[in-house]
Nucleic acid binder design. Structure first.
Lengths: 237, 237
DNA sequence: TTTGGCAATATTGGATCCAATTGACATGAA
DNA sequence: TTCATGTCAATTGGATCCAATATTGCCAAA
């Protein structure tokens, strides 16, 4: 990675390239945690000008992946396991709040039905400890749709902003990838449990049970946390 | 504000100037909500180069005060009342989580005592509906110290990051300023209530009552929300 | 030997210049 | 009259250049 990254075939844009390259280097440890990151060496290393590096560094600082060092540039800040678990906890309370608000809204029944429809294709997933073909992709899509719909139904825009910030910490977006390190039965059980939790949340929202919806949503996040702790291995980037 | 802002006497730096200037213009409505913000006119208007403007716009985009418009620059996004109330709700659940975690930690007794000591100077504040000289400043300092100490005692760094993002929405940092629009008795009552809530949270943490600490912290935020709703007038920047 | 001051260098931030992409407008043809 | 196409202009993104500043290393003096 010391050579200028391949830019021959339609490389998107220097800015985006630098952004993803630095992110990758930090989370993979290619740039050690706490190591200083200066503009000029980084720019030369990536084969671009200093400007995109500067832009990317400021953006990453707002994301928390680097910390400003006054006049001495930035330092890499690789999120550790504690930070990842903390981010999952934060996700839990934020989505719990979203679930509560949605359940309290006048149209909670419609929202619950919509959420139930989104996860409907996952009915029976992981039954008998077996996984059908494409079950992982099916769940991943339903999962993303569920959480996105919940956020969209919520009138509180601050939750979405906080979650966007929170998701900058690389952790859970790759759970699907980490799955293949587990045996089929375990994965099937996890998926079945997750689907059941989704269904329970949708039901609570449909019934307007705000407190229950919040508690269930939190449990769902706690389950992710336990899962994350279970596979202690280094998650893929 | 159409002229280059005064830079004669030790103006800090162009970058910071542009940042605060744009923030001010957006929250005060000098730049209308939804109005396009181009680099060149803004740079000329502020008497600086395009570069600090570009930097500031990207930063403000990550803060949520402007939204990117593809290749056509950015649009101002003034947070409305709903967004402010949403941010207060988010603050409530995040600090509630922090209180719960702190109360669950092994050293919860020491933390509770420390928090109690921080707010101790406010004992008896607002009693009999009267405010002593400098009571507002006293409370503001204790309030800031309380929340900062709670965050510092919490091992979950993601909470602090999410709160930092949340605090970009201008609202609650100026509650002390908004106070002077109220009569003395009302303010005294609010301060007394807020202090009592702080004390209750500190006590719950000291006792290790995690659920109670979280609920109390949420109530505290909800009180701020009600207060914010009470003074519906435009808060100062 | 240690400390303080000075100078040199490295590094960030800002300004100007250049290129590329996109949106809008006008003109011509169907 | 309307739609499509081509050209032009405006605006953003990137690169290079310049200035300001802090840090660090070295030397001299106590």
């Amino acid at each position: 990675m010391n050579l200028p990254l391949a830019r021959s075939p339609r490389s998107p844009k220097p800015g985006q390239r630098v952004m993803v390259a630095l992110r990758h280097m930090i989370v993979t440890g290619e740039i050690a945690d706490g190591a200083r990151i200066a503009e000029i060496p980084t720019a030369e290393r990536l084969g671009v000008s200093r400007m995109p590096v500067r832009t990317a560094l400021r953006a990453l600082a707002l994301e928390g992946l680097v910390v400003p060092l006054g006049k001495r540039g930035y330092a890499a800040r690789r999120p550790d396991q504690a930070m990842k678990e903390g981010a999952l906890q934060v996700r839990g309370v934020l989505e719990g709040l979203a679930a509560r608000l949605v359940a309290q809204a006048p149209d909670h029944a419609a929202t619950g039905a919509r959420l139930a429809a989104i996860i409907a294709p996952c009915a029976g997933i992981g039954a008998q400890g077996r996984l059908a073909e494409g079950a992982l992709a099916l769940y991943a899509e339903a999962n993303a749709g569920f959480h996105a719909a919940l956020l969209a139904a919520c009138t509180n825009g601050a939750i979405g902003m906080a979650l966007a910030q929170n998701d900058h910490i690389p952790l859970a977006s790759a759970v699907a990838f980490a799955f293949d390190t587990q045996d089929e039965a375990s994965v099937a059980g996890l998926l079945a449990a997750a689907h059941a939790q989704h269904a329970a949340v949708a039901r609570a929202i449909a019934e307007g049970a705000a407190e229950a919806a919040e508690a269930l949503m939190r449990s769902h996040a706690e389950a992710s946390l336990a899962m994350e702790r279970g596979l202690a291995a280094e998650p893929v980037a």
